Structures are given as C-alpha cells and as structure tokens.
Amino acid sequence: MGFWLRRLGLEQYEAAFRENEIDDTVLPNLTAEDLKDLGVPSSRATAFSVASEEYPVTHHSYS
C-alpha cells in the first residue's frame, strides 16, 4: 500500500492506512465515509476511488 500511495502522490495517508490495516483487499470496499474517518478529505476521496480502479494495488506490503 505504501508504494501505491506514494506512486499516486497520496503518501500523507500511508500512516493512517497502516494503522487501520487497510490493504488491497479492503481498499476497494472503502466508502467516502470510511476515507473521511481515516482523515482523507472528501475532495481526495474521489482520487482514491479512481486510483483504486485504474491502478490496482498488487501486493499487501507497505514497503
């Protein structure tokens, strides 16, 4: 996840994703409300939705 977030310029959310054990199996099911709870502003929630569809996470690692 860390690599994926950094690749998309969303690295500021890496700690929140790690602390909440968000991985490639959880990411596609996150709602805008879930992202908000993780500290992601609604303006960035769309970026996560689009990115998870266009650039799937290929591993569970945070490296």
Results as ranks from 00 to 15, higher is better:
A47F: 07
D34R: 09
R6W: 00
L27S: 12
E14Y: 05
P56T: 13
G39F: 15
E21V: 13
Y13H: 02
R18V: 14
V57R: 01
D24L: 06
V26P: 02
S43G: 14
F17Y: 00
V57E: 02
G9R: 02
A47S: 14
E54M: 08
S42W: 15
L30Q: 09
L10A: 09
R7I: 04
H60Q: 12
S42F: 15
L8Y: 04
A47W: 09
S52K: 02
A16F: 05
S63P: 04
L10I: 07
A15V: 09
W4K: 03
F17W: 02
K36L: 04
Y13V: 07
A32T: 09
A15G: 10
S49E: 12
F3S: 03
S63K: 07
R44I: 12
Y55D: 10
R7F: 01
S52M: 06
G9Q: 05
A51M: 03
L27W: 02
G2Q: 07
S52L: 00
L8E: 06
T31P: 07
H59Q: 09
K36R: 08
L30A: 09
L8T: 01
A15Q: 11
Q12V: 04
R18Q: 14
T58N: 13
R6Q: 06
I22Q: 00
H59L: 09
L30H: 08
T31I: 09
E21P: 13
F48D: 04
N29M: 10
D37V: 15
T31M: 03
S49F: 10
R7C: 00
L27Y: 07
T46I: 12
Y62F: 04
R18F: 15
V57N: 04
G2Y: 01
L27R: 11
E53A: 09
T58L: 11
T58K: 11
D34I: 12
R6G: 02
L10Q: 00
N20V: 13
D24M: 08
S42H: 15
H59E: 10
S61A: 06
Y13M: 00
Y55T: 08
L10Y: 05
S49A: 14
L27V: 12
Y55N: 11
R7H: 06
M1F: 11
S61N: 07
T58D: 12
A16M: 01
A47D: 12
L5A: 03
V50H: 03
G39D: 14
K36M: 03
I22L: 02
H59N: 09
A15C: 10
P56I: 12
W4C: 03
L5N: 07
K36Y: 13
G9S: 05
T31E: 00
E53Q: 08
A47P: 11
L10D: 08
P28E: 02
E19A: 02
E54K: 08
R44A: 12
P41D: 15
N29W: 06
T46E: 09
H60M: 13
E11W: 05
E11T: 04
T31N: 05
Y55H: 10
T46P: 08
A15F: 12
L38E: 05
A15Y: 10
R6Y: 01
S49I: 10
K36F: 11
V57I: 04
L38G: 05
F3I: 02
I22F: 00
T25R: 00
I22R: 01
L35I: 14
Y55R: 11
L10T: 08
G2K: 06
E21F: 10
E33F: 15
P56K: 14
D37N: 15
A16S: 01
E14N: 07
G9A: 00
V50G: 02
E14K: 05
A47Y: 10
V57L: 01
A51P: 05
